[in-house]
Nucleic acid binder design. Structure first.
Lengths: 113, 113
DNA sequence: CCGATATTCAACCATTTGGTTGACGTTTGG
DNA sequence: CCAAACGTCAACCAAATGGTTGAATATCGG
């Protein structure tokens, strides 16, 4: 389930900090790692987790791998949360129906997969 | 950081399912555990994780411990996510429409209770 | 009071996670 | 061509996670 990987990825403060950095601009792996007090390999792993969750995409140009934020990957998770946060006692059946059509729309957008 | 525990708690499908169940009504621990194919102790642990994250509160009355959804605990995490997503108006519009009908349904249900 | 019910605790286990280090393959610039 | 920079891989480690069982603790109903 994508919600699993997305929420799990966001559960780590280092990874959230990385996402916040990428909000400003695309970055090379080395530059992402720079402000952190841990090894480059550790950051590389964090980026792999974020990429697996779809929250970051990576493109290699020359010897530099550029990291790009992919905020759309948060959509489903955000919708899921909003159903709780803002609306108490929502009808679950109706909500699941709503979510199903929402996600269908997503799927049709991702036709290249 | 509360975001750590909230996101981590939401990263597990069993725990998300529990929250969805509590969306409908407060429940005793045993009743929460019922639909799952795992031990009561395992569910008890999951509820502890959710409680530690503030997503659920538990109140013991007699020998029964009642579990209550605390959606406010998602607020900070939800806001954090939305700061990334300029999520499409599409889904928000649909969601608001969904909500409008939801509240209508709720209102009509209340009259029959 | 007694047995059943509700829940947690404790010990244990396998797997995952988050980190390290050092070696490795590419690409680049001089 | 060669050294330096970029990034991953592999092996390893400690700690956390998610699950199991069985015993323990309250509390209820009769």
């Amino acid at each position: 389930m994508p919600l699993d990987t997305v929420f799990a990825a966001l559960g780590d403060p280092t990874r959230r900090a990385i996402l916040a950095m990428l909000l400003e601009d695309d970055m090379a792996v080395t530059d992402v790692a720079d402000p952190f007090e841990m090894s480059l390999a550790a950051i590389s792993k964090h980026l792999q987790v974020l990429t697996a969750a779809g929250l970051v995409s990576q493109e290699k140009r020359g010897r530099v791998k550029w990291c790009k934020l992919e905020p759309d990957a948060m959509r489903e998770a955000s919708i899921w949360m909003q159903s709780f946060g803002q609306f108490e006692a929502v009808n679950l059946d109706d909500f699941e129906r709503f979510l199903a059509t929402e996600l269908q729309d997503d799927a049709s957008e991702l036709s290249s997969d």
